[in-house]
């Protein structure tokens, strides 16, 4: 008999097809992902053993307490899990898994795109074109900043940060990083470690954020951190919006302290701070770092693999914690 699953988030047709083939699945109808109430109700009615969700579902202590006892595993189709109350899940005996490893390349690609687009004014140029262009631009006008050969600081040197570093090396960039602990040499690959973020910032022509969200990194890049960057630096964030103090970022972008920023994530999504939409020197994206067909399929399959493992009595592949 097939195991009972709630597919609570909208996903690709291929992932839905596999969920239906492998499980007795109740699939969200849309147009939005299921709310906590909808998940609780569906899980109770369906006697669900598993829930597949993403960062649109706040799986906090209240939501976890409301889940029926039949639910043994929750799989988030995301690498970040700041929407999950890990302590509450542990206390309840709910196994929670994520999808690390399958979206690193895709997200690092997107971070590099944002860095190039911000430095080379890609979005601003595209707007000029869509208004028709039709005038000659002076040889000294609208100049961007070269990326190749510059210094980039990476905040958070996990899998995605390291994949980003690999791409930056193709541009002959000097790589520096700040993380809680120093990496072994084979992962560091010559990157320079800074135990103190603020000591690294004055050397960063570019700063790219790849740290997780949550209280530990909240507003880590604030007014003081931004003031330590060289004038004309470029900031990229394809990780979590909460790492940045957005008021301070807005000030740095409008004062000329920063040349430009590339932002895929915001403190509040999708209701982001609309002041950024009025700026020419930002490149904005709607949290699509992992949005390639190949990667979204891989994330969904990985979440299903985790659920199958747990319900078959095997260890989870990507548990958020190990006992």
């Amino acid at each position: 008999m097939k195991r009972r699953l709630i597919l609570a988030c909208l996903t690709t047709t291929d992932v839905i097809a596999r969920a239906k083939a492998d499980f007795d699945a109740v699939v969200v109808e849309g147009p939005s992902d299921m709310t906590v109430d909808e998940v609780t109700k569906a899980a109770a009615e369906h006697k669900a053993e598993a829930i597949l969700f993403t960062n649109t579902l706040p799986l906090n202590a209240v939501a976890i307490a409301a889940l029926p006892p039949s639910v043994k595993v929750g799989a988030t189709s995301s690498v970040g899990y700041d929407h999950v109350d890990v302590a509450a899940a542990k206390a309840r005996g709910l196994i929670v898994t994520n999808t690390p490893g399958v979206l690193d390349e895709c997200t690092a690609d997107f971070g590099m795109m944002l860095m190039l687009a911000a430095a080379r004014r890609g979005a601003e140029y595209d707007r000029i074109m869509r208004k028709g262009w039709r005038y000659r631009i002076g040889q000294g006008d609208l100049l961007g900043v070269r990326v190749t050969g510059k210094r980039v600081g990476i905040l958070g040197m996990g899998r995605i940060g390291r994949a980003f570093a690999q791409r930056a090396r193709g541009f002959d960039m000097k790589i520096m990083y700040h993380a809680r602990t120093r990496l072994p040499p084979e992962l560091e690959q010559g990157a320079e470690y800074f135990a103190d973020l603020h000591a690294m910032l004055p050397h960063c022509d570019f700063l790219s954020i790849h740290a997780p969200g949550g209280p530990a990194t909240d507003k880590m890049v604030g007014a003081q951190a931004l003031s330590l960057l060289p004038d004309g630096a470029v900031l990229v964030n394809a990780a979590r919006g909460t790492v940045i103090d957005e008021d301070a970022l807005y000030d740095a972008l409008t004062s000329g302290k920063l040349f430009a920023a590339g932002l895929d994530v915001f403190r509040s999504e999708p209701d982001f701070d609309l002041r950024f939409a009025a700026l020419e020197n930002v490149v904005l994206a709607p949290h699509v770092g992992s949005a390639s067909k190949e990667t979204r399929d891989a994330m969904g399959y990985r979440a299903l693999d985790n659920i199958a493992a747990v319900l078959d009595g095997r260890p989870a592949i990507d548990p958020l914690w190990r006992d």
Binding site: C9, G30, A108, P270, A277, V288, A291, E294
Partner: peptide, 20 residues
């Protein structure tokens, strides 16, 4: 995003092609 009409995630929203 600039239009202010970003309503959140959707299944095939802006799915691109991987470069790497």
């Amino acid at each position: 995003v600039r239009s202010g009409q970003w309503a959140g995630w959707a299944p095939t929203q802006l799915l691109g092609t991987q470069v790497s």
